[in-house]
Design a protein around this nucleic acid. Sequence first.
DNA 1: GCTGGACCCTCCCCCCGGGGGAGGGTGCAC
DNA 2: GTGCACCCTCCCCCGGGGGGAGGGTCCAGC
Lengths: 265, 265
Amino acid sequence: MLAIGEFSRLTHLSVRTLRRYHDAGLLEPATVDQATGYRYYSPEQIPTAQVVHRLRELDVPLADVRRILRSPDPVTRAGLVADHLQRLESELARTRAAVASLRRLLAPEPSPVEVELRALPATTVAAVEDDVAHADVLAWYSGATAELEAVVDAPSGAPGGLYDNALFEHGRGHVLVHLPTDRPPRVGRVRPVTLPAVELAVATHVGEHGDIDVTYGELGAWVVANALAVAGPVRETYLVGPRDTPDPTAWRTEIGWPVFRVAAG
Amino acid sequence: MLAIGEFSRLTHLSVRTLRRYHDAGLLEPATVDQATGYRYYSPEQIPTAQVVHRLRELDVPLADVRRILRSPDPVTRAGLVADHLQRLESELARTRAAVASLRRLLAPEPSPVEVELRALPATTVAAVEDDVAHADVLAWYSGATAELEAVVDAPSGAPGGLYDNALFEHGRGHVLVHLPTDRPPRVGRVRPVTLPAVELAVATHVGEHGDIDVTYGELGAWVVANALAVAGPVRETYLVGPRDTPDPTAWRTEIGWPVFRVAAG
DNA sequence: GCTGGACCCTCCCCCCGGGGGAGGGTGCAC
DNA sequence: GTGCACCCTCCCCCGGGGGGAGGGTCCAGC
């Protein structure tokens, strides 16, 4: 039996941290003296402590560490660990994108964005829609478009999406992806939806989506400068995307912001 | 002039976050109405907001973001950004090491570690020592050994280190690296130091240092099982290291824990 | 001019995973 | 039996947000 200080020395986890892990139900001492509250660990717990240490180095949340340790089945366990490695991987991709985008932002090129005002009539499209968290948008989007493309046989234009402002302001909001077609079917999640007529301020974003808020910003500045106000969810149209070419510099995304005239300009 | 909600929509930063950035002095509104406290932003601030957004995606602390934004000189600014990318890089290396180590930990191999008790006489060595934070140990170590190796011309053995337990328990502690030699010089930070005689429980760690606490743990379990207690800083000896061969599987590190007998076993 | 609703303000509490330190009880070797 | 290292709980702090209360403000429509 090892007192907490000794166990700390053997595992290179601080006494504080060991106590916290006990409270969190992660690494329960083999014995706790009822009278004094002293925690006593057994040497067999050292490997467990080391696994915890590694998982924490990988920023696995304590709750997930507990889940991993409690799963008796090594296959389940390996699956949970693999999930986290997957998460780290996508985190890394996000970081890479942010680095690239930062470089472009700090590059001295001004990259003027052209904005055009366009009146759009109401259209009926095949659509999938849902309330989605910001972090899940990408995954949701790929699932929804895959379903759309599987169901719509003769699309009459490029796919698009509508994104509620709440998605960016509150991290969660209504999202709709659609594919224009003459006869929108009603299969699985796919439904015919009529998008209302709007006046759009439209700018075209060139390149990766990691930079897209730059174009959003330019579009927004233009909208403000032209005494317009934003009304309703933003509309994106994916003219050229990863489906069409692997070369990101060829990608084209139209961003359309529904606007109305503020006062009498 | 844009109210905070509108600016939020244009930058995809939440209203809350914008207020926080104001408080932190990161992104001050162009105007603040003295009477009402209302924040008003100018469209020119959109690009700044986007740079902040990118930096935060890279987990750059707010204080550093402020520093980057305030540095007028683009060269300084690029340097600060590069520093952070460097930090991300080393973070990535750490993650990779943790992943590899976790895989090995979860591998079904028991990898029995052999432990031996060894009495060591007092020795005088050439040493560099200091109080170091845990996070800085690696950097400090490479600097100190480089200095040692530059100054000691005829080492009589492998380099070693002494690591205070406080380093692991409290994140900061006394560290000493040394090179055994017949005539220890007194140059720069290098000093002759006499290491006291000790009885050591010794185990040899094979492979990368990312796993070294596993061997620490096995050594500790052995020490406990043999009714010994730990006394004083751990001693590592780098028999084969990165200086000798790039192949990590060939590396050999002796870990020696000063021990004394507990009670009459 | 008034009213309603959207917008904005400050302030406090919560999350995570730790660290610092106070104030007090315990184990054990001398 | 005494000193001291060790252990306990409890509270506050950090950074970078989110939730929500309670209250003031802007402005369009009537």
